[in-house]
Design a protein around this nucleic acid. Structure first.
Lengths: 157, 157
DNA sequence: TATTGTTATACTCTATAACTATA
DNA sequence: TATAGTTATAGAGTATAACAATA
């Protein structure tokens, strides 16, 4: 049989949007933004980056001299995850680890010139990715969403 | 040394909120909602559920007779992931697989009475989890967020 | 020939714990 | 004694490909 045999003419996908789960913010957000990450990864792929490594590179380019511990806390990642991400970026010549002279346990992650250029390219890609992922929302709605998320994450704005 | 040696008095975390990355919707959303998933998993833990299995159980309880294929598409998961999630729920007696008589390739995932009772409990937990995860937003802001996410996911509302 | 569920495999991500060097 | 970075390991999530039963 080529078509559905169900009594109703509407598809499961249409009917499912009324299910209780479809009104839960956590569910909706995870569904929307895991798709968003897929899109971002696709846009970043030929720059040798993924969403994760992009976020570390971005913070290394922000001229705030983060230690690996700072990055772990800010990016909500485990310090051990930062190690492999910085390893990867350093191997590609995009960042360098500089030992903090004031506390020789710490390593500040610093972007190279190549890293800054790569990040500039990558920012254009993530902008395109955001545009694709949020094509269902108007510019105004996107700004509302951005503001709500900033308040959620930074508990101010 | 006990305190920071940096020139500025503000912490890295405060200064980082102005970095370009901190204005990207995808970054903010992933940061907020992976934390949200951690919270939800913690609330669901002693019911033997996680966010993933909860979402499958939720759709099995919605009286829409989804096939595993329907679930895969709606939940944005691979059909093979649905297999193990349904395996787990069926092993715990929360759902049953019923062969669709009209297409014997398909299996409809149907909630048992035990499954429905467990889901009712679980819904209370996810409500608490949402409350904890979104404590930074007012009720009105939460509804705005919900509406924006529904539009994003269902391209209507 | 195409589709549903299934199995298998590899890779990424998440979560802990332990180790070393510095403080 | 505590902290920063590192290594190791196990478990959950992601992404593909192939196969048997059925359409």
């Amino acid at each position: 049989m080529l078509e559905t045999d169900k009594a109703d003419s509407t598809s499961y996908l249409e009917r499912a949007s009324d299910a209780p789960l479809s009104h839960e913010i956590e569910f909706l957000a995870v569904k929307a933004f895991t798709q968003g990450t897929r899109i971002a990864n696709r846009y970043l792929q030929d720059l040798g980056l993924r969403a994760r490594s992009y976020s570390v590179l971005a913070m290394a380019c922000a001229d705030l001299d983060p230690t690996q511990r700072d990055l772990a806390e800010f990016l909500s990642l485990d310090p051990s995850q930062i190690v492999s991400l910085v390893d990867e970026l350093e191997r590609d010549g995009l960042v360098r680890r500089l030992v903090d002279p004031s506390d020789r346990r710490s390593k500040v992650v610093h972007a190279t010139e190549v890293g800054r250029a790569r990040f500039a390219e990558a920012q254009l890609r993530t902008r395109s990715a955001e545009n694709e992922a949020l094509s269902g929302l108007s510019t105004e709605d996107r700004e509302t969403l951005r503001s709500l998320l900033r308040r959620l994450v930074f508990a101010a704005d």
